[in-house]
Design a protein around this nucleic acid. Structure first.
Lengths: 352, 352
DNA sequence: TTTATTTGCGACAACGTTGTAGGAACTATC
DNA sequence: GATAGTTCCTACAACGTTGTCGCAAATAAA
């Protein structure tokens, strides 16, 4: 308690203080602020004016505690440095802002232990709902079931948990796996390699199944040596790709299920003096904004990331707001698009 | 109240229920959980065991309300689809996870009105501190002062508010403005254009001053027609750049203060059949991961985004945890690095 | 034995809201 | 002029914690 000097205190207005200023009970003030029919118009106006003058804001913690809802959702994703999750967050945030919700963000860094730890933090009223895209490593789902047992609405997007009964927003990964493979076949590839990561990820499987089924459809026997299962270790991945492409029986097409493996392929082709698309055609799943400016421009399958974020968020808010009811949508599949660029271009005449 | 059937309720454990199960008062249980010296070891163990068995988690809302701190910070940024803010968030989150804080994210979409609205939401206990990078449009700072008056710790990074007395983490924009300009000069450019956005942004000014001072140092008279002030409207920007480059007195070097203007430049050069770096050299501020794979590879000034996030967050937590004291750091300037690539390469012999 | 001191626990009042119950002071009904 | 119905406000008990205070019982000191 300072005795001398002016106390410049950060004055946080509360309902009680506001009530005292107005000579009203604080329940009257509370109701007036929430436009209750129990309060006369004169009083309401008086309260509103004073609240504005004193810059009163309700305390969200107290309000949330009392109402048992936090007006907050959590977004749990592997990474944020990524052309896919960026727009997804954008989509989520756009709906959240409309609905006046707040967005907590948690990154798993592709680490299942972190994912588990994060879900623990979300179990007790901190959030009204959760949106998730699983980490590469995630193999068990007890931590996800725990969330459901607590009755917290949950929506998955892109990297979903098949065995959890919750709404899921995905893209047509299987179809795109087929489309990408057929695109390479149509442009003359005979030996197509498939580069993938995280075998327990739903999207990896679907994309690979598309690849395999496309080959089958065109009567091509899949070659195990052309299927590369990469990891989080970039150096190791590069070595694997180097082995694949340095080989005399190297592929003439590469279908990368994730962007970073395509970029590695570009780098290694430069090293090996392989020309894209002459010696090797490359296509991959990617939301990179500068794919068109790469050398050569990169053919991609692009996911509607922003829309996925929006749709998934919309489903979540729907679920949050009529708690316990059935979700509006059980499964939503959005379409990705294949954008053919120079990395898969047909070369009619070879340069001398 | 259902009479028949099994009620599968989402059972949320509270302190009171836990206490009842243990035949202890809830204040005893509360203290036991927080390892108070007032509680015997036997009781503590009993409580801890039961809490684990029943999967008790403290209610963060109640706890925050009582303790008057939310263990949450807000990150207010213009965009998330961006190679700069992505790593920044990553850096922030890494520290937040260490310190067991939660991170709320808010996007202004370069809109000052949204920025103002967001700051209003953060005024009453929702967060213990705020990290901000201003929107392009932000011209007044009363909304920022309001935060400070409420006593909420605030740290700026990259796009700072010069007139607000709060810690600021930036990069050496002025120096880099000089370095980039000199790099172009050294590589033979005579007429260097400067492409910028958002004139009221601190970083824009500093970068431009670097550009101007570098010209002055080399006795070159700045040409107003070579300074392009772009906006948020991409189509309009493209037109401006087209005018600049379509002109007979076009520049032979472009220094873009933001990445997107460099990308536009690439696109327009393609349109006009201008060769980079032969006809025009290009350099820009950018954290693009694929700059090396562009056609041609793009020379950049790259900011240490992740480190900025970490440093700014560390300063904020420092401030949050010893509230009211002086900040540890008033101003921190990290160094960006210039990476020269082919877009600014010297061409000794022109192709026929 | 009497008087301090420690140990271990419980009661209780916050934190800032919201919603229910209650109750004056009016106005309308018969 | 008693009864019923509005209107407008206040009191109070939650929501789930945390921290202060008080108080028995056990231990130590005199």
């Amino acid at each position: 308690m300072p005795i001398f000097g002016i106390v410049h205190q950060s004055y946080i207005m509360t309902l009680k203080q506001l009530a005292k200023e107005l000579n009203l009970s604080f329940s009257t003030v509370s109701k007036a602020l929430r436009d209750s029919h129990e309060i006369s118009i004169e009083t309401k106006n008086r309260v509103l004016a004073k609240a504005k003058a004193l810059n009163y804001q309700v305390n969200p913690l107290a309000s949330s505690l009392r109402k048992q809802k936090s007006k907050t959702i959590a977004v749990v994703i592997p990474e944020v440095v990524n052309d896919f999750f960026g727009p997804v967050i954008n989509g989520i945030e756009s709906i959240a802002q409309e609905k006046e919700y707040h967005v907590l963000i948690y990154l798993t860094h592709e680490d299942m232990q972190k994912e588990v730890a994060i879900t623990k933090l979300l179990q007790n009223g901190r959030v009204d709902g959760i949106m998730m895209s699983l980490s590469e490593q995630t193999s068990t789902t007890t931590h996800l079931k725990a969330l459901q047992e607590k009755g917290i609405p949950l929506v998955f997007f892109d990297r979903i948990a098949e065995d959890i009964n919750a709404p899921k927003v995905t893209t047509d990964d299987y179809n795109c796996g087929i489309k990408a493979t057929e695109h390479l076949l149509e442009n003359g590839c005979k030996r197509i390699a498939f580069l993938t990561i995280a075998p327990n990820l739903s999207i990896s499987n679907k994309r690979m199944n598309g690849y395999l089924d496309a080959l089958k459809k065109h009567n091509i026997e899949p070659d195990e040596r052309l299927i590369l299962s990469c990891t989080g270790d970039d150096a190791k991945n590069n070595e694997l790709i180097l082995q694949l492409l340095g080989n005399s029986k190297r592929p003439d097409g590469v279908f990368a299920s994730v962007e970073k493996l395509a970029i590695s392929t570009y780098a290694i082709c430069a090293e090996l003096n392989l020309n894209i698309p002459e010696d090797l055609k490359v296509i991959c799943f990617s939301n990179m904004q500068t794919a068109a400016f790469l050398n050569p421009s990169l053919s991609t399958i692009t996911q509607p990331a922003y829309e996925m974020g929006r749709e998934a968020a919309a489903i979540l808010f729907d679920l949050v707001e009529k708690k316990g009811k059935q979700p509006r949508v059980e499964k939503m599949v959005l379409n990705s698009i294949l954008v053919a660029r120079n990395s898969t271009k047909v070369i009619l005449f070879r340069k001398p």
